[in-house]
Every structure is written in C-alpha cells, then in structure tokens.
C-alpha cells in the first residue's frame, strides 16, 4: 500500500497537508472535460482543506421542465456527486478510486433559469473504507440554496 489513508482519519494532530498529493484544479481539468462531466460542462471554482466548489452553467439542453425552463435535477446530482468526490480526494490527499454508495438530494427550490449553479461538497468524515460527505447547491446566493445533498463513498482500492 503506497500510502495509508487511515492516517488522515486517525491522526488529527499530524494533520496532513491535504493538497500534497492531489491538485484539485489539475484533477478537475482531467476529469471534468470528458464523458458525462464534460457533456454537462462542470468547471472548477475554488476549494479548501476538505471541500470543493464546482459550477454548472445554465444550458437549454439540460432543462428538465420545458414549460418553466428549470434545469433538470439530474445534472445537479452529477454536479454534487463530482463536488463531493473532489472533497474526498482533497481530504485524503490522493486521487484514489472510489464509488458512490448512495446519494440523497433534497430539492429546496427550482434553480432560476439562466443562472449558473454552484455546487459545494464537503467531506466531514473519512475512514479507511468510507467517506461521508454533504453539500449544497445555490444559484447566486449561498444563503438561499436550491438543493441539499448527503452521500457516502466507498474506497474501491481497499480489500
């Protein structure tokens, strides 16, 4: 095992430099421009020790309700899945394979048509095998979020 992810969860005094082995901006460039992430157009905004913010621009082909022009919830789930994944990699300090176990999203209100959606994901607890994350999405005012998310990830490189 090249590096024990356990140390991050069990050695709070020896708080690791979270970004030592993981550069969120570089990683997002690597994974945000291909496949589904690239197709919906997620991009990097900012990050901290255990959180990341990504953005999703409004687009007509991502509309979920043709009458109102409101964005579909699917792309918002994809955005939050990605933002919370980034938060885990930042906190672990490494870009390791992981799989989403479950994700719950509460739709607090519809996103305003035309507005860019910002998704903020936070990893609030990391164990050797499981990462617990939460986050929210807003479309301009963080105090008036459009969605709230809770999810767990499983490390797929652990036996």
């Amino acid at each position: 095992m090249p590096m024990s992810p356990l140390s991050l969860a069990t050695m709070p005094d020896a708080h690791p430099p979270a970004l030592q082995g993981f550069d969120p901006e570089a990683a997002i460039r690597l994974i945000a421009n291909v496949g589904h992430n690239g197709a919906i157009g997620t991009h990097y905004v900012t990050h901290g020790d255990d959180w990341a913010e990504l953005a999703l621009d409004y687009r007509d082909d991502l509309i979920g309700d043709a009458d109102s022009g409101v964005l579909a919830s699917g792309p918002i789930i994809a955005l939050m899945d990605m933002a919370t994944s980034m938060a885990v990699w930042i906190k672990r300090g490494s870009f390791k394979p992981q799989a989403t176990l479950d994700l719950r999203i509460d739709y607090l209100r519809a996103a305003t048509p035309g507005h860019t959606v910002i998704g903020r994901g936070e990893c609030y607890r990391l164990t050797r095998r499981i990462a617990f994350v939460r986050g929210y999405a807003h479309d301009g005012d963080p105090a008036d979020p459009i969605a709230h998310v809770a999810a767990t990830f499983m490390m797929t490189d652990e036996a």
Partner: peptide
C-alpha cells in the same frame, strides 16, 4: 457515470 444513472432513474 453515476450522475447519468441518477438522471435516468429520475426520468
């Protein structure tokens, strides 16, 4: 992508 699977389930 998990997001695409979630999108399909919602639809």
């Amino acid at each position: 992508h998990g997001g695409a699977i979630a999108g399909l389930l919602e639809i």
